[in-house]
């Protein structure tokens, strides 16, 4: 074999399994060492630079880093990387003075961000310090997207989400909430220098089954139902509930049902 080319940064990057597996390539061991050293604020900022929402992700991330963790190959369980991220978020000091300065004089470029979820907010976080004028649109009254409407509060308290969403909004974003964008052509006609579309996947799949129409008052679409609970429109559910599906949304529906009056909650899933 040819000698390994260690000058290619991807060689050593790949050795850091967790960081390599992270879509945002968060420098995991670096922040974990800072937690060992009691330097939670610095551990938080390393995360904040890479993943923008450490408090949110430290509770809710799909954590592709953990199945990749070398500890999992040495013994059984990987390092609790995700929950250590939460430690950095829980025990950090006030970080506002560490956030980037936002130029008062803008660079003359105007960007529209459609949808105020994690994707648009990340774009905004990266562009605001460069002097861009950022207009963010969302049909809800607050930013956060699916982090607010679909992740239940018993997994992600609103205060944690608000804090990290506000770090970005407070960078001088111009917000257009309660605004449903109905035409991209219309947006493009308003002389933006670029348009970013971060509108997520907001439509829950339905099932066409006999009786679906007759039973519609008691048949709910998971993500719509979770949003309705999150925005305080739905406060209860029947005693016997069937949840169809086996993903995150199904589990959140099942756990939310138990909290809103469901006593006999069944999850039906074709995966065994």
């Amino acid at each position: 074999m040819q000698p390994t080319d260690v000058k290619n940064p991807e060689y050593y990057h790949k050795v850091v399994d967790c960081q390599y597996a992270c879509p945002a390539h968060t420098p995991v061991p670096q922040y974990i060492r800072l937690i060992s050293a009691g330097r939670y604020t610095e551990a938080y900022m390393i995360n904040w630079e890479s993943n923008v929402f450490p408090g949110v992700l430290g509770r809710t991330c799909d954590r592709p880093c953990e199945p990749a963790c070398r500890r999992g190959r040495i013994e059984e369980e990987p390092v609790a990387i995700c929950r250590l991220k939460r430690v950095a978020a829980d025990f950090k000091d006030d970080i506002t003075h560490l956030l980037p300065d936002i130029p008062k004089v803008k660079n003359g470029k105007k960007i529209a961000l459609i949808g105020a979820g994690p994707a648009s907010l990340s774009v905004a976080r990266d562009l605001a310090p460069l002097g861009y004028e950022l207009h963010i649109y969302d049909n809800q009254h607050k930013a956060g997207g699916m982090m607010r409407s679909q992740i239940p509060s018993f997994r992600l308290p609103a205060e944690v989400l608000d804090q990290e969403v506000n770090y970005v909004l407070d960078m001088g974003l111009i917000t257009h909430f309660n605004t449903y964008v109905t035409s991209l052509k219309d947006v493009l006609s308003r002389n933006y220098d670029a348009v970013f579309i971060g509108t997520g996947a907001p439509r829950g799949k339905d099932l066409v089954l006999p009786g679906r129409e007759e039973g519609k008052a008691n048949i709910h679409i998971g993500i719509e139902w979770l949003a309705s609970v999150a925005f305080d429109h739905t406060h209860n559910i029947g005693k016997r509930v069937i949840v169809l599906g086996g993903g995150n949304t199904a589990m959140d529906c099942c756990r939310t049902s138990r909290r809103l009056g469901g006593e006999d909650v069944k999850v039906q899933n074709k995966a065994s």
């Binding site: 992270c22 879509p23 945002a24 390539h25 993943n51 923008v52 929402f53 949110v56 992700l57 809710t60 991330c61 799909d62 592709p64 949808g115 979820g117 994690p118 994707a119 648009s120 907010l121 990340s122 774009v123 976080r125 990266d126 699916m146 982090m147 991209l184 493009l188 933006y192 220098d193 670029a194 348009v195 970013f196 579309i197 971060g198 509108t199 997520g200 996947a201």
Partner: peptide
Amino acid sequence: KVFFGGDAALGPKNVITAVAQGHQA
């Protein structure tokens, strides 16, 4: 001048993927 990111770009994934795509966009 039109860019996409998050679940709207390459289909539903998760928050950390949306963030990573936001950085690239």
